[in-house]
């Protein structure tokens, strides 16, 4: 039961990683690509981490997975903001559809 729930979560996570990469390839400019990367990949990671937590061998391992996820969440939110403001400062105008 727990194992199958874990598999479902891992598959869902993989789907979002795919979505992030497709967006990264198809989206027209840095800003929109940042959207894809930040949101889809972090959700994918969150689901993968959740799936792995269900299989983890100890409570400490569960906590560690959670801390890694939190850290990556914070890192990637900050990183996306830094890259976006860098692009703005250096005069890269956003694409407008």
């Amino acid at each position: 039961m727990l194992a199958s729930l874990s598999v479902v979560l891992l598959l869902a996570g993989a789907a979002f990683f795919l979505g992030g990469s497709v967006g990264m390839l198809r989206f027209p400019d840095v800003y929109t690509r940042l959207h894809a990367l930040t949101k889809a990949d972090n959700l994918g990671l969150g689901l993968v981490v959740l799936g792995l937590m269900l299989q983890a061998e100890s409570l400490a391992a569960v906590g560690k997975l959670f801390v890694i996820w939190l850290l990556l969440l914070a890192a990637s939110a900050t990183a996306s903001q830094l890259v976006a403001s860098w692009a703005q400062e250096n005069g890269f105008a956003p694409w407008r559809g």
Partner: peptide, 29 residues
């Protein structure tokens, strides 16, 4: 790897910098 193609294409340095973020999350997973 699909993401890496974007790094090759660019066109801006910021696009290439997305590689670090991509590696951070995907490789960690």
């Amino acid at each position: 790897v699909a993401g890496l193609w974007r790094i090759r294409r660019g066109p801006t340095p910021a696009d290439r910098m997305l590689a670090a973020q991509l590696f951070g999350t995907t490789a960690a997973a």
